[in-house]
């Protein structure tokens, strides 16, 4: 099966041609399979945002190539334009890009640029609003009258309405309170089960990534440091710490318990931990 997004030998320099030239990402090779959820984590300045800006051709690589659906996106103007719609990119703090008079029209901006017929635009807006959790009564309000969390949902709906094959979210939960965070992560999970789309999430939060991602890609100093299932990545907690990253709190506790000689599995979420503890007590172990 052709991967949803593939990058080969991708390199991008900042301040190219000056003596301050630095590689923001350096010779990256990455395959994102269709239908999977990939989490990208990394320290500030590790190149996460630069990497995802290549997926829809907003940035042009200095070396290497980007393939969406098996096609090089820089082949022609048309392939580049198509990649914008195939890969829906939602930036950090997307609420600051709202501009239309009503929420409905703002969500319709993407589909309108795709030159779709009016009834199709309407269908997509309503579906996307439903999936992103934008309330029906808010659709005719000005986006500037919404609360912060509602604005965020409306902005994410604006990307979902293009019905991209790959949805890329850069720090979707940044600046939200814990309840808002949980709701947002659940919203992404539901979106994925409903559409079966490929989802790429960039985040600092290990907990968020652990609960949604099938695979985790760790970026460090412009290169891929680790790539694997959450289990594989989080078991290397010391290496992660050296990169300025952290495994989820609950995983840390369980890893310590293990070192102390308790027979517990690796867990990434509190729910899993609870189940593990129940198992432990059921098994008669009463340490």
């Amino acid at each position: 099966m052709t991967p949803a997004v593939e990058v080969r030998n991708l390199t991008h320099y900042y301040l190219k041609g000056t003596e301050n030239q630095v590689a923001a990402i350096n010779k990256i090779n990455l395959c994102v399979e269709k239908g999977e959820t990939l989490g990208i984590i990394g320290h500030t300045g590790s190149g996460k945002s630069t990497l995802i800006a290549h997926f829809n051709g907003l940035l042009k690589p200095d070396e290497g190539e980007v393939l969406v659906d098996g096609k090089n996106i820089f082949e022609s103007k048309e392939t580049l334009r198509q990649s914008r719609f195939k890969v829906g990119l939602c930036f950090q703090y997307p609420e600051y890009q709202l501009f239309e008079e009503t929420v409905f029209r703002d969500i319709a901006f993407g589909p309108k640029n795709m030159k779709l017929p009016q009834d199709e635009i309407e269908r997509r807006v309503l579906t996307a609003a439903g999936m992103a959790g934008v309330k029906k009564e808010n659709l005719n309000k000005s986006p500037f009258d919404l609360s912060g969390g509602e604005k965020r949902r409306a902005a994410i709906a604006g990307v979902m309405s293009m019905e991209p094959q790959v949805l890329v979210l850069d720090e979707p939960a940044a600046g939200l309170d814990p309840a808002g965070r949980r709701e947002l992560i659940n919203m992404i999970k539901n979106y994925r089960t409903a559409t079966g789309c490929t989802v790429i999430i960039v985040s600092h939060s290990m907990e968020d990534i652990a609960s949604v991602a099938d695979r985790v890609c760790v970026l460090n100093k412009a290169e891929i440091a680790m790539l694997g299932t959450p289990k594989e990545v989080y078991s290397r907690d010391e290496e992660l710490r050296e990169m300025g990253l952290n495994v989820p709190e609950i995983t840390k506790i369980f890893l310590t318990l293990r070192k102390r000689g308790l027979d517990v599995p690796e867990v990434f979420t509190v729910d899993e931990a609870l189940a593990a503890f129940r198992n432990l007590t059921k098994g008669g172990g009463n340490q």
């Binding site: 930036f91 600051y96 890009q97 293009m162």
Partner: peptide
């Protein structure tokens, strides 16, 4: 930043 965000929406 805004230009990139709107370009991403086509």
């Amino acid at each position: 930043r805004i230009m990139n965000a709107q370009k991403a929406r086509g």
